[in-house]
Structure formats: structure tokens, C-alpha cells
Measured scan of single mutants.
Amino acid sequence: MDETGKELVLALYDYQEKSPREVTMKKGDILTLLNSTNKDWWKVEVNDRQGFVPAAYVKKL
């Protein structure tokens, strides 16, 4: 969790967005987890953008 109590995830792999609903991340990025109710796609925030990334590409910290 960060200082505001939000849950964080670590990008395990690079991911290039394939639609406007997704976000690009690089391996090693720390992202804010917004929603993990879907087992396949998690909603995150990175670089002031919100979108989805494959759940298998990130790990909760």
C-alpha cells in the first residue's frame, strides 16, 4: 500500500495497450490497483492514466 492506503501492484512484464481501455506498463513499474474483481483484467492507474492490464502480468505488493 502507498501512503494513501491504496493497494499497489508490480508490473512483472512489459505490456503495450491494445485498446483505449488499457494502459501501457513496463516491467518494474509500480501501479495503483483500482479494481481486481475480474480474474483476468485488473484496473490500475499509472502515470495519471486509468485502464486495464492483464492480471497475470502484475503482482500485488
Rank of each mutant, 00 (worst) to 15 (best):
Y57D: 04
Q16F: 15
W42T: 03
E17H: 07
D40H: 14
I30K: 04
G5I: 13
V58W: 01
E22N: 04
T24M: 04
L34D: 01
D40Y: 15
K60E: 07
D2F: 12
Y13S: 08
L31I: 08
L61K: 04
L61G: 03
V9C: 14
V44W: 00
P54W: 03
Q16N: 14
V23D: 00
T37C: 14
Y13M: 10
M1T: 13
E22I: 04
L10W: 07
A56Q: 11
L31D: 00
A11W: 02
D14V: 02
V53S: 00
V23Y: 03
R49I: 07
K6D: 09
L12A: 04
D40S: 10
T37D: 15
V46L: 15
E3M: 14
Q50S: 11
M25G: 00
L31F: 06
E22F: 06
A56W: 09
E3D: 14
D2Q: 14
R49W: 04
G51V: 04
P54V: 01
L33G: 01
V58Y: 01
K26L: 08
G28H: 05
A55T: 05
S36Q: 09
E45P: 00
L33P: 00
Y57T: 08
M25I: 15
K27H: 06
L8I: 08
A55C: 06
N38C: 10
V53M: 01
E3C: 15
V23Q: 03
K43M: 15
V9G: 12
I30Y: 06
Y13C: 15
W42Q: 01
A55F: 02
D29Y: 05
N35A: 08
G51E: 02
M25Q: 01
L61Q: 05
T4W: 13
L12M: 09
I30M: 06
S36K: 07
L31W: 02
K60C: 11
T24R: 05
L10V: 15
K26G: 05
S19G: 12
L61R: 03
Q16R: 10
E17A: 15
T37F: 09
L12V: 07
G28D: 05
V53I: 08
P54L: 04
Y57F: 12
Y15E: 01
A11Y: 01
D48I: 06
T32Y: 11
G28N: 06
N38K: 06
V46H: 15
L12W: 04
R49E: 05
F52H: 05
P20L: 09
Y57L: 15
P20V: 09
W41L: 03
Y13L: 10
L8S: 07
E45R: 09
L8E: 07
V44Y: 00
Q16S: 11
P20R: 09
K18N: 10
K26S: 08
L31Q: 00
D48V: 06
N35D: 15
D40T: 12
A56M: 12
G5P: 15
T24E: 04
E7Q: 14
V23E: 01
L34I: 14
N38H: 11
Y57E: 03
D14W: 03
P54F: 03
I30D: 01
M25E: 00
Y57I: 07
D29V: 04
K26A: 08
R21S: 13
G51L: 04
M1P: 13
E7M: 12
V9A: 10
T24C: 06
Y15M: 01
E3A: 14
D29P: 00
Y15K: 01
S19C: 10
D2N: 13
Q50E: 10
E17N: 07
L34F: 04
D29C: 07
A55I: 03
I30R: 05
K6R: 14
V58T: 04
T4Y: 13
E22Q: 11
R21N: 14
D48M: 10
V23G: 02
K60M: 11
